[in-house]
């Protein structure tokens, strides 16, 4: 594995970076927007959930576009963490903080998404429980679960939008300092927008 990774470092890192944006990040955006139907009330939300659950090839889409890319991204993300020796408290530059936060939020997002998928996708499927507004609302009554979701969504949105910035550098799209600075502002704006969408939807379940 180690030898294979050394030999294919370039390819694995490029795929890792790409998968974070497509399909994982694209799905995250879609997921947060879909959840926002909750702000229109339980009936509208349940109707949309049923529509998604009635999609053809749903399981293949979930595996191919969510589970496999997400696990690849997470698994190699943890492998790459090995070389990380943080110095953000000594060299206090904004980018260095973002570099550290990218890794910390990645770990938080992994725990959060793991729990979230277990709770609302795997456990419900095993027990045959319906996934609907009521299920989520019952969970969010618990203040600790609600706070965990606030932290989890924030970390995930940060990891995604700051990841777009890194992706643009990593693929050689934004090269100079000016283009990287502008990309930084755009990504920050997108992050704030997605965070609002995500938390507003979460709030609707309370």
């Amino acid at each position: 594995m180690r030898e294979w990774l050394k030999k294919n470092n370039f390819l694995v890192r490029k795929i890792h970076s790409l998968l974070g944006i497509f399909p994982v990040g694209v799905f995250l955006t879609e997921h947060l927007i879909t959840n926002s139907f909750a702000t229109f009330g339980p009936e509208v939300y349940n109707e949309k959930i049923e529509w998604i659950q009635s999609m053809p090839y749903l399981f293949a889409l979930e595996v191919g576009f969510i589970f496999v890319p997400l696990l690849f991204h997470a698994l190699f993300g943890f492998v790459f963490l090995w070389a990380w020796k943080d110095n953000s408290s000594r060299y206090r530059y904004a980018r260095n903080w973002l570099y550290t936060l990218q890794r910390v939020t990645g770990i938080i997002a992994f725990v959060f998404i793991g729990y979230h998928v277990w709770e609302f996708r795997i456990e419900t499927a095993l027990n045959g429980k319906p996934v609907d507004f009521e299920l989520v609302a019952n969970e969010m009554v618990n203040i600790r679960a609600f706070l965990f979701y606030i932290v989890g969504i924030s970390a995930t949105v940060f990891h995604f939008t700051n990841g777009i910035w890194s992706f643009l550098v990593h693929w050689g799209i934004t090269v100079g300092p000016k283009s990287q600075r502008i990309a930084g502002y755009v990504c920050a704006g997108l992050g704030v927008a997605l965070l609002y969408i995500g938390l507003d939807a979460l709030w609707a379940f309370r």
Partner: peptide, 19 residues
Amino acid sequence: IMGEGGIEDCGNSQNCVKV
């Protein structure tokens, strides 16, 4: 620089350019 320890190992902390 596309092999082991090459450009892919950059983590974009951008400390290098600062110092």
